[in-house]
Design a protein around this nucleic acid. Structure first.
Lengths: 331, 331
DNA sequence: TTTGTTACCGATACCGGTATCGATAACATT
DNA sequence: AATGTTATCGATACCGGTATCGGTAACAAA
């Protein structure tokens, strides 16, 4: 079956294109009898409007572009789900792109997305290179940067400070009496937020006259398996650590599993700390420490800002919405 | 900064719209000097082409619509990542929609997506209601149904048989000497593939003169926490089960955690079986049985089919690509 | 009867690109 | 000098809708 156009629907209903358009959109100025005929013709031809034409003509799209770095970690899909849910009922539609933690690819994806003339764009983090920032600024639409808070926002900003999250976690752990710290990380040169957490953590360690006794940083991305492997290696060479800080909960969970297999008592002998507050982490048979980040809520909040900014483009809106991660799992 | 148009770029370069268009697209018939001027003007105005106009005019989009039921389970993001990766370099762009396991919502989303005139559409499963099927058929583009295999495909089909996956798992478990089976599920009325697995499993049990001694099915969606809770409840009332089959690995993992807290020996006393073959499952300190489904590969395969079907619309292509899940974790 | 109103509908321009065809100038060929 | 070629560019139509304005018929009011 070939795609049918409004023209064809109109012809089938014996009216003009314009009248058909009005009938389908529910505009007034159409007799209910005519409307009926058009609706029927459209149904009959299984007509689906052409949004390209609609958007081009009306000079507005219902698109919200969203760029996230990855889909392999549940964190970003959760943000997307939040955005998608937060947009529901607004007539707006999210379009996603994956940058694979690659700045060049991100630039390219943003460019592609902008060419679809979205009404707003949501990007992850505040660390876009200058050229990307310029592109975003010149797009003339609301730009929402999510997840992070450490940096200069382009426009709107929804997130939490990863630097502070690292600091707080370190403070809590030092406060709990831990002294011999190790760090296990992954892909820090690409996951800049994880790097910020580590930096914040180290800063507080230093303030307390402490430091990471041992570090193990892999260049691949975080996973449970990687956390398990690196932990096994590290505990073999430095068995007397009493606290391990990880990139995130996935890595930390792998660490916990390693400990369970090695028979290392968690948290008595070794405290394990991650980041994110995954559902997984709270269901674990042994508690690990984590900073709970409101991922879905951040997505929903970003969506709300988009709706507000579009509903009232000239209004003065709150530009920054900060979340504070709650630390759990330290007793 | 206001969005600039090709017209403006052309004016700035002192040429016609048409020449500017050619220069930017790298078409021949433009002197390198003129091309240079246009490129410079475009750069200067930070011009970004309008894909709406492009696609409307050229009558082709680079869009591939994708509809998945959820983002809360890592399974679907992985499929999306596979699709996204498989499309890379083709100039095509995936657009995602989330149906929340709701047939009505799915219908609506598919309708919305089709209005963007995608070049192909990928949907999850084979169980769309008749009206949705009609809509997909009349779209006149390649339709790829992924994940499932049990049913009548509209066009292309990439997936595995969940009915058989359930059967195979049951055969393996019965073969391993298990006799007293329990089932723990979630949202089966919406997650039809999980229901198919259960049906297949039960069929084989019956063939062996067995049945589920106890069932516990919640109406909410699968999660580790839910698996843990339901397992704790079930083991309290029926402690002598020797095998538990779950909706999926998330639920099964929760079950394992419950067992670890209750001190139930896994797998000696109780064997735990899920589905998916998540990374999580293989990193667990105790092995659980699972059927490994090639989620990312299914996404990549779907993307490949899309590319082939679009590159050669009239060619005869293989319509169905079947995967067989590998069972692991039974010793 | 004339004049307003109102309800309904159509003609036309336009959104921002691309496809197509034709025009022009410069140069080579006969 | 006349004719062909080639390289380069522009004018126009069109993609499929919507915005805008104007037209017609029916009916009410004066």
């Amino acid at each position: 079956m070939r795609k049918s156009t409004l023209e064809e629907v109109a012809a089938a209903a014996g009216v003009s294109k314009m009248t058909a358009s009005r009938a389908l959109r529910g505009t007034p100025d159409v007799s209910s009898e005519t409307r009926q005929r058009v609706l029927q013709a459209a149904e009959q031809l299984s007509y689906i409007g052409n949004r390209l034409a609609l958007s081009l003509s009306s000079q507005r799209t219902n698109l919200v572009a969203v760029v996230v770095p990855s889909m392999s970690n549940i964190v970003f899909p959760e943000v997307l789900a939040g955005i998608s849910a937060g947009l529901e009922g607004s007539g707006m539609q999210a379009v996603f792109g994956i940058s694979d933690y690659d700045a060049a690819k991100e630039r390219e994806i943003i460019h592609d997305m902008l060419s679809w003339q979205p009404s707003a764009i949501i990007v992850t983090g505040l660390d876009q290179p200058e050229e990307t920032v310029r592109m975003l600024k010149s797009a003339g639409i609301p730009v929402i940067q999510v997840m992070d808070l450490d940096g200069d926002p382009i426009d709107f900003n929804v997130g939490l400070s990863h630097g502070r999250a690292g600091e707080e976690m370190a403070r809590a752990l030092v406060g709990a009496g831990r002294k011999r710290f190790g760090y296990i990380g992954s892909a820090l040169e690409r996951d800049l937020r994880a790097a910020k957490r580590k930096a914040g953590f180290e800063k507080v360690l230093k303030q307390n006259g402490l430091h990471f006794v041992e570090q193990q940083i892999d260049s691949t991305f975080s996973s449970i398996a990687l956390g398990k492997r690196l932990t096994t290696t590290m505990l073999a060479s430095v068995p007397d650590l009493d606290c391990l800080y990880y990139t995130n909960d996935d890595m930390a969970t792998g660490g916990l599993f390693a400990c369970m297999e090695l028979g290392v008592a968690v948290p008595e002998k070794l405290l394990i700390a991650g980041f994110n507050g995954l559902d997984l982490a709270s269901a674990l048979p042994v508690r690990i420490a984590t900073s709970r980040s409101p991922r879905r809520v951040m997505g929903e909040t970003a969506a709300r800002l988009v709706r507000e900014a579009i509903a009232d483009p000239d209004g003065s809106h709150q530009k920054t919405i900060a979340f504070t991660p709650e630390i759990t799992g330290i007793t």
